[in-house]
Nucleic acid binder design. Structure first.
Lengths: 198, 198
DNA sequence: GCCTATTGGAACACAGATGTTCCATGCGGG
DNA sequence: CCCGCATGGAACATCTGTGTTCCAATAGGC
C-alpha cells in the first residue's frame, strides 16, 4: 500500500498505516496476555510476521514503541485535562474523562514488567505521578480535597478506582456508559474534606 | 532435611517445608514478573531446579497450587471478616484489615493470565465477587451504603483502592503502617450515602 | 558406623519463540 | 504494459525454558 511520496514530502510523514495497525493489535492482545507471541500479534493485526519484524526489528522494539506511545497518550490526556485550570476536584473529573478511554493502552503498561527497564519510562511515569501529586496537593491547600490523607495515597486510590472500574467494564460487570460518572462520584465523595461533605 | 516420620504419622502431614519455601519464593517472584522461569524461582527458593520439579511436576502444577492457595487465603480472609456480622461498612473495614496483608499473593493473581483457565479458579473468584456484591447490596438496603451506584461498581472501586494503595506501599510512596486506615477512610467516605455524610 | 533416601547438579531431548534470509506474489505508479 | 517495491510465506539457525534421567553427595535414622 503506497509509500512513494516519501522523497517528495518533508513533513514528519502522515503516519505509516502498517505500524499503526500492528501497534493497535499488540496493545489489545498484550493487555490481556502479556506473553503473546509475535505470531499471534501479527495474525491479529492481519499482517505477516515478517512485516512485523520489518517495522519493529526486535520484540523489544515493539514493546518500547508501545510503552512510549501509551505514556505519550497519558501525558496528552493530562494536558487536555488542564491540570492548573480550576478547582482540583473539577480537574480530577476531567482527568477521568480523558484517561478512561485510554484504558487499553494503560492496561498494557500494567502487565509488562520489562518495559520499565527503560529510563525514559521511569522518567515519564514519575512525571505523571508527580503531576497528579501536585494537583492533589493544590486541592488540599485550597480546601477542596481532604488534607488528612497524604496526596500520594489519594493519587493511588484514584488510579486504583480508575483501573478497578475499568476492569469491571472489561469483564462485563459494569456498564461502560456509566463508568465515567461513577468513578468521578466515588472519587470525589471519597476525597472531599469531611467538614465540607454535602 | 528429614522426612522419615511419614510412615508413623497418619496426620495430613505437618506441611513439607520444601513445598512451602518454593511457593513463597514463587509468589514473591511472580508478583513482579509473571514470566519468571523455574530456574529463577528455584534459585530464589534456595533449592535446585530438580527439586522444584519433584514437588511440582510441571510449571502449571506450581501455578495452580499458587493460585488455589491465594484464593484459599482470600476466602479465609473473607470468612475471618465475618461478612454477615454487623453493618456493611464495618464489615468492609474488617475486610481491608484481613485482605491487605495478603497482597503478595493477590498481586500474583493479577499477573497470571493462564491461571484463570482453571474452572475451579473461575468458580472461586466468582464466589468471592458474589460475596462482596451481596455484602454491598445488604449495606445499600440497610442504608449504610449509597444506593445510587451499582453494587458491582462499588466492589470494583473498593478492590481498586485496595490494589492501588498496595502498589503505593510496594513502590515506597505510601507508608505501610497507615495504609489500612487510609483505605478504610477513603472507601467509607466514597460509599456513604450523600444524605448521611457526616 | 552403616543405610537409606532425599537433594542438587549435569546432561539430554524437546517445544516454542525469535530473528534472518530468500523468493514468489501482487499492487501501485509511470 | 512494464517496472518497482512492499508484502507474506517458507525455511532456517538459534536460544531459552521445560521436563526427564542419571548419578554423586550428604544428612538423618537405625
Amino acid at each position: 500500500m503506497s509509500g512513494s511520496v516519501r522523497s517528495l514530502s518533508t513533513t514528519p510523514q502522515p503516519a505509516e498505516p502498517v505500524r499503526e495497525v500492528v501497534l493497535r493489535a499488540a496493545a489489545a492482545l498484550l493487555a490481556t496476555d502479556s506473553g503473546a507471541s509475535l505470531a499471534e500479534i501479527a495474525a491479529a493485526a492481519g499482517v505477516g510476521r515478517t512485516t512485523v519484524h520489518r517495522v519493529f526489528p526486535t520484540r523489544g522494539d515493539l514493546l518500547t514503541a508501545l510503552a512510549l506511545e501509551a505514556v505519550d497518550r497519558l501525558t496528552g490526556a493530562l494536558t487536555a485535562a488542564r491540570l492548573d485550570d480550576g478547582p482540583a476536584t473539577e480537574v480530577l473529573a476531567r482527568v477521568v474523562e480523558e484517561v478512561l478511554p485510554l484504558s487499553d493502552e494503560l492496561a498494557f503498561l500494567d502487565s509488562g514488567p520489562e518495559v520499565w527497564d527503560l529510563p525514559q519510562m521511569r522518567d515519564a511515569w514519575w512525571s505523571v505521578t508527580a503531576s497528579l501529586d501536585s494537583l492533589v496537593q493544590r486541592g488540599q491547600l485550597e480546601g477542596d480535597i481532604r488534607g488528612d490523607i497524604p496526596a500520594e495515597v489519594v493519587v493511588e486510590a484514584f488510579t486504583g478506582i480508575l483501573l478497578g472500574v475499568w476492569n469491571g467494564v472489561r469483564d462485563g460487570r459494569v456498564a461502560p456508559a456509566t463508568a465515567t460518572r461513577h468513578v468521578v462520584t466515588l472519587t470525589l465523595a471519597g476525597i472531599t474534606p469531611p467538614t465540607r461533605q454535602v
